[in-house]
Design a binder for these strands. Structure first.
Length: 388
DNA sequence: TCTGTCACG
DNA sequence: ACGTACGTGACAGAC
Protein backbone atom coordinates (compact mmCIF):
# COMPACT_ATOMS: atom_id res chain seq x y z
CA UNK A 1 0.00 0.00 0.00
CA UNK A 2 1.09 3.58 -0.61
CA UNK A 3 1.43 5.71 2.48
CA UNK A 4 0.76 9.32 3.40
CA UNK A 5 4.14 10.50 2.22
CA UNK A 6 6.91 12.60 3.64
CA UNK A 7 8.05 16.07 2.69
CA UNK A 8 11.51 16.53 1.21
CA UNK A 9 13.46 19.77 1.10
CA UNK A 10 14.64 19.58 -2.51
CA UNK A 11 16.59 22.81 -2.14
CA UNK A 12 18.67 21.30 0.67
CA UNK A 13 19.25 18.17 -1.40
CA UNK A 14 20.26 20.23 -4.40
CA UNK A 15 22.86 22.08 -2.35
CA UNK A 16 24.42 18.84 -1.17
CA UNK A 17 24.42 17.39 -4.67
CA UNK A 18 26.13 20.42 -6.16
CA UNK A 19 28.84 20.29 -3.51
CA UNK A 20 29.48 16.60 -4.16
CA UNK A 21 29.66 16.82 -7.95
CA UNK A 22 32.94 18.77 -7.82
CA UNK A 23 34.44 16.45 -5.24
CA UNK A 24 33.58 13.34 -7.27
CA UNK A 25 35.32 14.78 -10.35
CA UNK A 26 38.34 15.70 -8.26
CA UNK A 27 38.53 12.16 -6.84
CA UNK A 28 38.31 10.62 -10.30
CA UNK A 29 41.08 12.83 -11.68
CA UNK A 30 43.39 12.02 -8.76
CA UNK A 31 42.64 8.30 -9.03
CA UNK A 32 43.53 8.27 -12.74
CA UNK A 33 46.77 10.08 -11.98
CA UNK A 34 47.77 7.64 -9.24
CA UNK A 35 46.81 4.62 -11.34
CA UNK A 36 48.64 5.98 -14.38
CA UNK A 37 45.55 5.34 -16.52
CA UNK A 38 41.87 6.16 -16.81
CA UNK A 39 39.54 3.44 -15.61
CA UNK A 40 35.95 3.05 -14.43
CA UNK A 41 35.92 3.51 -10.67
CA UNK A 42 32.51 1.86 -10.63
CA UNK A 43 33.78 -1.35 -12.21
CA UNK A 44 34.82 -3.91 -9.60
CA UNK A 45 36.69 -5.75 -12.32
CA UNK A 46 38.76 -2.75 -13.35
CA UNK A 47 39.31 -1.65 -9.75
CA UNK A 48 40.59 -5.14 -8.86
CA UNK A 49 42.95 -5.08 -11.86
CA UNK A 50 44.37 -1.68 -10.92
CA UNK A 51 44.72 -2.42 -7.19
CA UNK A 52 45.89 -6.02 -7.19
CA UNK A 53 47.73 -6.37 -10.54
CA UNK A 54 48.99 -2.97 -11.59
CA UNK A 55 49.71 -1.58 -8.10
CA UNK A 56 50.31 -5.01 -6.52
CA UNK A 57 48.38 -4.26 -3.33
CA UNK A 58 47.49 -7.12 -0.99
CA UNK A 59 44.41 -8.97 -2.24
CA UNK A 60 41.85 -10.14 0.29
CA UNK A 61 38.85 -12.38 -0.12
CA UNK A 62 37.73 -13.80 -3.45
CA UNK A 63 34.25 -13.89 -4.89
CA UNK A 64 32.90 -15.98 -7.75
CA UNK A 65 34.52 -13.77 -10.34
CA UNK A 66 37.73 -12.59 -8.72
CA UNK A 67 39.20 -10.61 -5.88
CA UNK A 68 36.74 -8.64 -3.79
CA UNK A 69 37.12 -4.87 -3.64
CA UNK A 70 34.42 -4.26 -1.04
CA UNK A 71 34.54 -1.83 1.89
CA UNK A 72 36.27 -4.21 4.23
CA UNK A 73 39.00 -5.14 1.77
CA UNK A 74 39.63 -1.46 1.03
CA UNK A 75 39.76 -0.63 4.72
CA UNK A 76 42.46 -3.23 5.38
CA UNK A 77 44.69 -2.01 2.53
CA UNK A 78 44.06 1.69 3.14
CA UNK A 79 47.62 2.22 4.37
CA UNK A 80 49.25 0.60 1.35
CA UNK A 81 48.47 3.23 -1.27
CA UNK A 82 46.92 6.68 -1.47
CA UNK A 83 44.47 5.58 -4.17
CA UNK A 84 42.55 3.37 -1.74
CA UNK A 85 41.28 6.27 0.34
CA UNK A 86 40.18 8.11 -2.81
CA UNK A 87 38.29 5.04 -3.92
CA UNK A 88 36.58 4.68 -0.54
CA UNK A 89 35.42 8.28 -0.61
CA UNK A 90 34.32 7.97 -4.25
CA UNK A 91 32.25 4.92 -3.37
CA UNK A 92 30.52 6.69 -0.49
CA UNK A 93 29.74 9.83 -2.49
CA UNK A 94 28.53 8.13 -5.67
CA UNK A 95 26.39 5.72 -3.67
CA UNK A 96 24.61 8.59 -1.98
CA UNK A 97 24.28 10.61 -5.19
CA UNK A 98 23.08 7.72 -7.38
CA UNK A 99 20.70 6.16 -4.87
CA UNK A 100 19.33 9.16 -2.99
CA UNK A 101 20.31 12.66 -4.02
CA UNK A 102 19.70 12.04 -7.73
CA UNK A 103 16.55 9.91 -7.81
CA UNK A 104 14.54 11.12 -4.79
CA UNK A 105 13.75 14.66 -5.99
CA UNK A 106 12.38 13.22 -9.26
CA UNK A 107 9.94 10.98 -7.35
CA UNK A 108 8.16 13.75 -5.49
CA UNK A 109 4.42 13.71 -6.22
CA UNK A 110 2.01 16.49 -7.12
CA UNK A 111 1.34 16.96 -3.42
CA UNK A 112 5.02 17.83 -2.93
CA UNK A 113 5.62 14.68 -0.93
CA UNK A 114 7.58 11.49 -1.44
CA UNK A 115 5.47 8.32 -1.42
CA UNK A 116 6.88 4.86 -0.84
CA UNK A 117 5.14 1.51 -1.19
CA UNK A 118 4.84 -0.63 1.91
CA UNK A 119 5.07 -4.32 1.08
CA UNK A 120 3.27 -6.40 3.67
CA UNK A 121 3.85 -9.90 2.31
CA UNK A 122 7.47 -9.93 1.14
CA UNK A 123 9.74 -10.50 4.15
CA UNK A 124 9.75 -14.03 5.57
CA UNK A 125 9.94 -12.66 9.11
CA UNK A 126 6.75 -10.59 8.95
CA UNK A 127 8.63 -7.35 8.64
CA UNK A 128 7.37 -4.69 6.26
CA UNK A 129 9.58 -3.67 3.41
CA UNK A 130 9.46 -0.48 1.32
CA UNK A 131 10.22 0.11 -2.33
CA UNK A 132 10.20 2.76 -5.05
CA UNK A 133 11.80 4.44 -3.19
CA UNK A 134 13.11 2.35 -0.30
CA UNK A 135 12.53 4.82 2.52
CA UNK A 136 13.62 2.26 5.11
CA UNK A 137 17.20 2.69 3.88
CA UNK A 138 17.70 6.45 4.13
CA UNK A 139 21.33 7.15 5.18
CA UNK A 140 22.29 7.91 8.78
CA UNK A 141 25.62 6.22 9.55
CA UNK A 142 27.95 8.84 8.09
CA UNK A 143 28.05 12.63 8.49
CA UNK A 144 27.05 13.09 4.85
CA UNK A 145 24.32 10.50 5.32
CA UNK A 146 22.86 12.48 8.20
CA UNK A 147 22.85 15.58 6.02
CA UNK A 148 20.72 13.74 3.49
CA UNK A 149 18.39 12.57 6.23
CA UNK A 150 18.00 16.16 7.39
CA UNK A 151 16.39 16.96 4.02
CA UNK A 152 13.35 14.95 5.18
CA UNK A 153 11.34 17.70 6.84
CA UNK A 154 8.04 18.56 8.47
CA UNK A 155 5.49 20.92 6.92
CA UNK A 156 5.76 24.50 8.26
CA UNK A 157 4.01 24.65 11.62
CA UNK A 158 4.60 20.95 12.13
CA UNK A 159 7.28 18.67 13.57
CA UNK A 160 8.50 15.20 12.76
CA UNK A 161 8.30 12.84 15.72
CA UNK A 162 10.65 9.87 15.73
CA UNK A 163 10.06 7.06 18.24
CA UNK A 164 12.23 3.99 18.28
CA UNK A 165 12.32 0.88 20.40
CA UNK A 166 15.49 0.60 22.45
CA UNK A 167 17.33 -2.73 21.93
CA UNK A 168 14.02 -4.44 21.24
CA UNK A 169 15.47 -7.66 19.84
CA UNK A 170 17.77 -8.20 22.82
CA UNK A 171 14.88 -7.41 25.17
CA UNK A 172 12.83 -10.04 23.37
CA UNK A 173 15.74 -12.44 23.82
CA UNK A 174 15.81 -11.65 27.55
CA UNK A 175 12.06 -12.25 27.70
CA UNK A 176 11.84 -15.53 25.79
CA UNK A 177 14.95 -16.98 27.43
CA UNK A 178 14.15 -15.69 30.91
CA UNK A 179 17.87 -15.07 31.35
CA UNK A 180 18.09 -13.25 34.72
CA UNK A 181 21.35 -11.43 34.01
CA UNK A 182 20.01 -10.06 30.76
CA UNK A 183 16.63 -9.13 32.23
CA UNK A 184 18.20 -7.40 35.20
CA UNK A 185 20.54 -5.42 32.97
CA UNK A 186 17.54 -3.99 31.11
CA UNK A 187 15.48 -3.48 34.26
CA UNK A 188 18.31 -1.50 35.83
CA UNK A 189 18.65 0.59 32.68
CA UNK A 190 22.19 -0.61 32.04
CA UNK A 191 23.91 -0.61 28.67
CA UNK A 192 23.40 -4.16 27.38
CA UNK A 193 26.65 -4.30 25.39
CA UNK A 194 28.54 -3.27 28.51
CA UNK A 195 26.73 -5.98 30.46
CA UNK A 196 27.74 -8.57 27.85
CA UNK A 197 31.35 -7.36 27.96
CA UNK A 198 31.36 -7.66 31.74
CA UNK A 199 30.24 -11.28 31.56
CA UNK A 200 32.06 -12.53 28.46
CA UNK A 201 35.31 -10.59 28.66
CA UNK A 202 35.35 -10.33 32.46
CA UNK A 203 36.01 -6.59 32.37
CA UNK A 204 34.48 -4.23 34.88
CA UNK A 205 32.26 -1.54 33.33
CA UNK A 206 34.52 1.25 34.56
CA UNK A 207 37.58 -0.30 32.91
CA UNK A 208 35.90 -1.17 29.62
CA UNK A 209 37.60 0.12 26.46
CA UNK A 210 35.70 1.09 23.32
CA UNK A 211 37.19 -1.89 21.52
CA UNK A 212 35.97 -4.28 24.19
CA UNK A 213 32.47 -2.85 24.15
CA UNK A 214 32.49 -3.12 20.36
CA UNK A 215 33.42 -6.82 20.61
CA UNK A 216 30.53 -7.38 23.01
CA UNK A 217 28.22 -5.53 20.64
CA UNK A 218 29.21 -7.83 17.77
CA UNK A 219 28.62 -10.86 19.99
CA UNK A 220 25.13 -9.59 20.79
CA UNK A 221 24.45 -9.05 17.09
CA UNK A 222 25.68 -12.57 16.49
CA UNK A 223 23.32 -14.03 19.07
CA UNK A 224 20.37 -12.29 17.43
CA UNK A 225 21.43 -13.46 13.97
CA UNK A 226 21.87 -17.08 15.06
CA UNK A 227 25.51 -17.17 15.95
CA UNK A 228 28.31 -19.09 14.24
CA UNK A 229 32.01 -19.05 15.02
CA UNK A 230 32.80 -18.39 11.39
CA UNK A 231 30.41 -15.45 11.12
CA UNK A 232 31.68 -13.88 14.32
CA UNK A 233 35.31 -14.40 13.31
CA UNK A 234 34.65 -12.74 9.92
CA UNK A 235 33.01 -9.74 11.52
CA UNK A 236 35.51 -9.25 14.31
CA UNK A 237 38.39 -10.18 11.98
CA UNK A 238 39.76 -12.64 14.51
CA UNK A 239 40.68 -16.36 14.29
CA UNK A 240 37.76 -18.74 14.33
CA UNK A 241 39.09 -20.39 17.48
CA UNK A 242 38.94 -17.12 19.36
CA UNK A 243 35.43 -16.46 18.09
CA UNK A 244 34.42 -19.90 19.34
CA UNK A 245 35.87 -19.05 22.74
CA UNK A 246 33.78 -15.90 22.91
CA UNK A 247 30.66 -17.88 22.02
CA UNK A 248 31.43 -20.58 24.58
CA UNK A 249 32.01 -17.93 27.24
CA UNK A 250 28.76 -16.16 26.33
CA UNK A 251 26.66 -19.31 26.50
CA UNK A 252 28.28 -20.33 29.79
CA UNK A 253 27.54 -16.91 31.28
CA UNK A 254 23.99 -16.76 29.90
CA UNK A 255 22.86 -20.39 30.25
CA UNK A 256 19.19 -19.57 29.76
CA UNK A 257 20.05 -18.14 26.35
CA UNK A 258 21.82 -21.38 25.52
CA UNK A 259 18.68 -23.28 26.55
CA UNK A 260 16.49 -20.98 24.48
CA UNK A 261 18.62 -21.59 21.39
CA UNK A 262 18.59 -25.36 21.90
CA UNK A 263 14.85 -25.41 22.58
CA UNK A 264 14.08 -23.28 19.52
CA UNK A 265 16.14 -25.53 17.25
CA UNK A 266 14.54 -28.70 18.66
CA UNK A 267 11.02 -27.38 18.22
CA UNK A 268 11.67 -26.08 14.73
CA UNK A 269 13.17 -29.42 13.72
CA UNK A 270 10.19 -31.28 15.15
CA UNK A 271 7.49 -28.97 13.73
CA UNK A 272 9.13 -27.66 10.57
CA UNK A 273 8.28 -24.11 11.60
CA UNK A 274 9.03 -21.61 14.35
CA UNK A 275 6.57 -19.33 16.14
CA UNK A 276 6.92 -15.68 17.16
CA UNK A 277 5.71 -14.17 20.45
CA UNK A 278 2.36 -13.21 18.93
CA UNK A 279 1.91 -16.52 17.12
CA UNK A 280 3.21 -15.80 13.62
CA UNK A 281 4.81 -18.86 12.05
CA UNK A 282 7.80 -19.07 9.75
CA UNK A 283 8.40 -22.38 7.95
CA UNK A 284 12.02 -23.49 8.19
CA UNK A 285 12.31 -26.53 5.94
CA UNK A 286 16.07 -25.92 5.77
CA UNK A 287 16.44 -27.18 9.33
CA UNK A 288 15.60 -30.74 8.22
CA UNK A 289 18.06 -30.75 5.29
CA UNK A 290 20.67 -33.50 4.94
CA UNK A 291 23.27 -30.94 3.91
CA UNK A 292 24.96 -29.62 7.04
CA UNK A 293 25.38 -26.12 5.67
CA UNK A 294 21.72 -25.82 4.80
CA UNK A 295 20.75 -27.26 8.16
CA UNK A 296 22.93 -24.72 9.97
CA UNK A 297 21.25 -21.98 7.97
CA UNK A 298 17.87 -23.34 9.11
CA UNK A 299 19.00 -23.21 12.72
CA UNK A 300 20.05 -19.57 12.38
CA UNK A 301 16.81 -18.67 10.61
CA UNK A 302 14.77 -20.30 13.38
CA UNK A 303 16.57 -18.53 16.21
CA UNK A 304 16.64 -15.17 14.45
CA UNK A 305 12.93 -15.35 13.60
CA UNK A 306 11.91 -15.39 17.25
CA UNK A 307 13.47 -11.96 17.71
CA UNK A 308 13.03 -10.35 14.31
CA UNK A 309 9.51 -11.75 13.81
CA UNK A 310 8.35 -10.82 17.30
CA UNK A 311 9.70 -7.31 16.81
CA UNK A 312 7.66 -7.07 13.61
CA UNK A 313 4.52 -8.29 15.42
CA UNK A 314 4.93 -5.83 18.27
CA UNK A 315 5.50 -2.72 16.19
CA UNK A 316 2.50 -3.59 14.00
CA UNK A 317 0.29 -3.75 17.10
CA UNK A 318 1.66 -0.37 18.16
CA UNK A 319 0.99 1.12 14.71
CA UNK A 320 -2.63 -0.02 14.73
CA UNK A 321 -3.24 1.36 18.21
CA UNK A 322 -1.52 4.66 17.47
CA UNK A 323 -3.56 5.10 14.33
CA UNK A 324 -6.79 4.34 16.24
CA UNK A 325 -5.99 6.71 19.06
CA UNK A 326 -4.99 9.56 16.77
CA UNK A 327 -8.34 9.18 15.03
CA UNK A 328 -10.40 8.75 18.21
CA UNK A 329 -8.77 11.69 19.93
CA UNK A 330 -9.23 13.98 16.96
CA UNK A 331 -5.55 14.54 16.26
CA UNK A 332 -4.33 15.61 12.85
CA UNK A 333 -0.94 14.02 13.49
CA UNK A 334 -0.30 11.02 11.23
CA UNK A 335 2.07 8.14 10.82
CA UNK A 336 4.34 8.65 7.83
CA UNK A 337 6.96 5.88 8.04
CA UNK A 338 7.88 2.65 9.80
CA UNK A 339 11.51 1.55 9.82
CA UNK A 340 11.43 -1.83 11.61
CA UNK A 341 11.89 -0.54 15.15
CA UNK A 342 11.11 3.13 14.55
CA UNK A 343 7.95 5.08 13.79
CA UNK A 344 8.01 8.50 12.16
CA UNK A 345 5.02 10.80 12.58
CA UNK A 346 4.22 14.32 11.47
CA UNK A 347 2.28 16.47 13.92
CA UNK A 348 1.14 20.09 14.14
CA UNK A 349 3.27 22.00 16.65
CA UNK A 350 0.34 22.26 19.06
CA UNK A 351 -0.05 18.47 19.18
CA UNK A 352 3.61 17.50 19.51
CA UNK A 353 3.79 17.06 23.28
CA UNK A 354 0.57 15.07 23.49
CA UNK A 355 1.38 12.90 20.49
CA UNK A 356 4.86 12.12 21.79
CA UNK A 357 3.27 10.81 24.97
CA UNK A 358 0.58 8.91 23.09
CA UNK A 359 3.16 7.23 20.89
CA UNK A 360 5.33 6.29 23.84
CA UNK A 361 2.37 4.75 25.67
CA UNK A 362 1.21 2.67 22.73
CA UNK A 363 4.68 1.50 21.71
CA UNK A 364 5.61 0.52 25.27
CA UNK A 365 2.21 -1.03 25.89
CA UNK A 366 1.99 -2.98 22.65
CA UNK A 367 3.19 -6.11 24.41
CA UNK A 368 3.84 -6.94 28.07
CA UNK A 369 7.49 -7.87 27.83
CA UNK A 370 9.69 -8.79 30.80
CA UNK A 371 11.94 -6.79 30.76
CA UNK A 372 9.55 -4.06 29.58
CA UNK A 373 9.78 -2.44 26.16
CA UNK A 374 11.72 0.82 26.08
CA UNK A 375 11.13 3.68 23.64
CA UNK A 376 13.11 6.82 22.80
CA UNK A 377 10.99 9.67 21.43
CA UNK A 378 12.19 12.91 19.89
CA UNK A 379 10.81 15.72 17.75
CA UNK A 380 12.31 18.22 15.34
CA UNK A 381 11.86 20.07 12.10
CA UNK A 382 13.72 17.35 10.21
CA UNK A 383 14.23 13.60 10.55
CA UNK A 384 17.80 13.92 11.73
CA UNK A 385 16.87 16.41 14.43
CA UNK A 386 13.92 14.26 15.52
CA UNK A 387 16.29 11.38 16.29
CA UNK A 388 18.60 13.34 18.61
C1' DT B 1 19.65 -11.29 -15.97
C1' DC B 2 23.32 -12.02 -12.67
C1' DT B 3 26.95 -10.31 -9.53
C1' DG B 4 29.08 -7.21 -6.49
C1' DT B 5 28.43 -3.61 -3.63
C1' DC B 6 26.23 -0.91 -0.13
C1' DA B 7 22.11 1.81 1.98
C1' DC B 8 18.99 0.62 6.23
C1' DG B 9 17.04 -2.24 10.53
C1' DA C 1 36.32 -30.16 4.33
C1' DC C 2 32.83 -27.57 3.67
C1' DG C 3 31.64 -22.03 3.74
C1' DT C 4 27.87 -18.25 6.60
C1' DA C 5 26.58 -14.20 10.38
C1' DC C 6 19.55 -12.26 10.10
C1' DG C 7 16.08 -9.38 7.13
C1' DT C 8 15.42 -6.15 3.05
C1' DG C 9 15.96 -2.90 -1.95
C1' DA C 10 18.65 -0.10 -5.45
C1' DC C 11 22.27 0.73 -8.53
C1' DA C 12 26.28 0.02 -11.85
C1' DG C 13 28.73 -2.98 -14.58
C1' DA C 14 29.43 -7.59 -16.50
C1' DC C 15 27.60 -11.11 -19.19
Amino acid sequence: MEAAGVKVDTYRMGEITARLADRVEELEAKAYELAGEEFMLGSTQQVARVLFEKLALTPGRKGKTGYSTDTRVLRTIRGEHEIVGLLEEWRELTKLVNTYLGPLPTLIGEDGRLHTTFNQAVAATGRLSTSNPNLQAIPIRTELGREIRSAFVAEPGHKLISADYSQIELRILAHVSGEPKLREAFERGEDVHTATATEVLGVEPAKLTKGERSIAKMINFGIVYGISAFGLSENLEIPREQAQQYIDAYLARFPHVQDFIARTIEEATRDGYVTSLLGRRRPVQEIRAQNRQTRSLGERLAVNFVMQGSNADIIKVAMIRIHERLRNEGRSARLVLQVHDELLLEAPDAEVAAVKELVREEMCGAYALDPPLGVDVGAGTDWNEAKD
